[in-house]
Amino acid sequence: MSRIEAEAVTVERAGRAIVDGVNLQIESGQLVALIGPNGAGKSTLLSLLAGLLRPDGGSAKLDGAALTSIDRRKLAQVRAYLPQNPRAEWPVSVERLVALGLLPQLPAFGGLPAHMHARVAMALEAADLTNHRDQPATTLSGGELGRAMLARALVGDPEVLLVDEPLAGLDPRHALDGIIRLRALADEGKLVIASLHDLTLAARYATHVAVMSGGKLAAFGPTSLTLTAALLRQVFEVDACVTGAGTPTATVDFVPQAAL
């Protein structure tokens, strides 16, 4: 059972609050879709909750301990983080790229132990990348690389998973596969936070939504109660049609305000 809490966390850059007094409590078993317009502070909040950024005010905690005070390696063993648009810097094989997710679990010296090879193979299989195993990661397409990176984050079987736009650039089938896997992880009892721009997928699969707007948390709660047309109008400044939020057939549609 894990629990992430943010207590009045604030991050300032050049005198401007990018994340402004956010209070949030997220528990295992939840798939939280972090939504909001561009520049709302979603990515900054995610790296705060991942413990990669020290807040200028307030505190972010994992199971009651301030994230920035937890030993890096111990934190890395329970929490995986995937930034936006991850890139492979060297043309290493996809298999090796995914295996890098096991670094925090490796012994101090030596290579990958035999039983971990099986985990890498399973992660590749789940990401539908087995055929690309030996391909240099730099030659993958954007969507394939996104899947490889998600496999990298999941290969260590983390209790807490924070992913920044994991579905960007994925074709419909793999986007669905991706979000269904995230939901399955939450159902297994993991804590998953994913920033998303596809609100239909969020409405269908997220157990909870957290809505950021101008650095502030505009709303947080169960998807069926929180994701409403009124909220989307207020935050995204578009008229929206939301049907069946929180059910597997939900849709979210936008219409420009002028059209009505």
Binding site: A88, L97, L100, M149
Partner: peptide, 15 residues
């Protein structure tokens, strides 16, 4: 090795 994934991911891996 971890830096193959870029600085943010390397940090998240405990580096």
């Amino acid at each position: 090795d971890a830096l193959t994934l870029g600085e943010a991911q390397a940090q998240s891996l405990g580096i």
